[in-house]
Design a protein around this nucleic acid. Structure first.
Length: 329
DNA sequence: TACCAGGAGAGCG
DNA sequence: CGCTCTCATGGT
């Protein structure tokens, strides 16, 4: 453990920029880092003994929570501590480490959305039984703000795949086509998510070798359209929700659900409400028991019932349905 | 073994 | 429209 610290100190000492370091800290409250990184919105994080390791953009990152304890120093949260602490009810900090020293951490604060007033968001949720149960069960669950291309490509690969499998496909894609990124001494090699240009240049059989099956031609064609500017991902951010969704749906392999995932997880459109099989099950069971409701009708319901932060409500329902066996049926 | 997985898109009546 | 089928692969 101390050897890890000294490695980072050495790396920091070699930096020419004064004040730059390989570590920073974000004070947070109600932030369940584990649930957030493992709730099916991103597929790049691996749980290690000392936190979570992943790649954001072209940077290797390690994250872990430390909780504030009354009357004592901050205590590292092990994964075996009390459920209350693990759910992030306590105030604490997110400790972040990178492989190279930095003096500007805004990119990470933005990714983690540490500035969000979660209580304010939760207060806008409808005051009904299902929502109360989901919030109580998933306190501290957050939405990240991811890179649009990585998010889009990942969800093109997600259709009818289990989350563990999506992670594996994305990992293979990055290993084979992504640029290697700097990692601390002794850490496993890590790779950036491949650019649209690189994916478009890959052969379909090379992509299929990453176990993505029939999704390969869709990913490749979408990469080409994004790479050559036929669909401009940077423009989507400034569009009204419906137009932004329609723009994304011009891409092959992107329907309503995947478009909404990208709108919510990458662009932060709060009205986007992706309805997948889990959310559909949860909605039917919790809000329309013993009634046959079509997907279209369910979508109309989600547009009016969950308020201005419907997307957040969706993530709570999704995680609640997935984690709690009662809803699995 | 059979069924299902953070779906999309074509083909059908 | 609204429904059904297929697509590729692996987990449970």
């Amino acid at each position: 453990m101390s050897s890890i610290k000294s490695r980072f100190l050495n790396a920091a000492a070699s930096d020419e920029a004064a004040g730059a370091g390989c570590r920073t800290v974000f004070p947070v409250r109600d932030y369940d880092l584990g649930a957030t990184l493992n709730s099916g919105q991103t597929f790049r994080w691996q749980r290690r003994e000392d936190g979570w390791e992943g790649v954001i953009g072209s940077r290797w990152v390690r994250l872990r929570m430390e909780a504030d304890r009354p009357g004592s120093r901050r205590e590292r949260i092990s994964f075996q501590t009390s459920a209350a602490a693990a759910r992030g009810r306590n105030a604490g900090v997110i400790v972040a480490e990178t492989a190279q020293p930095l003096n500007d951490w805004r990119w990470l604060a933005d990714y983690l959305q540490v500035g969000l007033d979660l209580g304010g968001v939760l207060a806008t949720f409808p005051d009904d039984g299902p929502m109360r149960a989901a919030v109580a069960a998933c306190r501290g669950l957050r939405l990240l703000r991811q890179d649009p291309w990585e998010c889009l490509a990942s969800f093109i690969l997600s259709s009818t795949k289990q989350i563990v499998q999506i992670r594996r496909i994305v990992a293979l894609l990055c290993e084979r086509f992504g640029d290697p990124v700097m990692v601390p001494n002794g850490c496993e090699a890590a790779f950036a998510f491949p650019t649209p240009e690189r994916v478009a240049a890959a052969g379909e059989s090379e992509l299929r070798a990453c176990k993505m099956g029939f999704r390969a031609p869709n990913l490749r064609a979408a990469a080409r359209k994004v790479g050559d500017g036929e669909v401009d991902l940077s423009r989507v951010a400034g569009l009204p929700t419906a137009a932004a969704r329609a723009e994304l749906m011009r891409l092959p392999g992107v329907g309503r659900k995947i478009a909404d995932c990208v709108l919510l997880f990458a662009y932060g459109f709060q009205a986007a409400f992706p309805v997948d099989v889990w959310v559909m099950k949860a909605l039917r069971r919790l809000y329309f028991p013993r009634r046959r409701v079509a997907l279209k009708r369910l979508q109309q319901f989600t547009e009016t019932h969950f308020g201005p932060h419907a997307g957040h409500a969706q993530q709570y329902l999704f995680h609640y349905a997935r984690v709690h066996a009662k809803l699995k049926e």
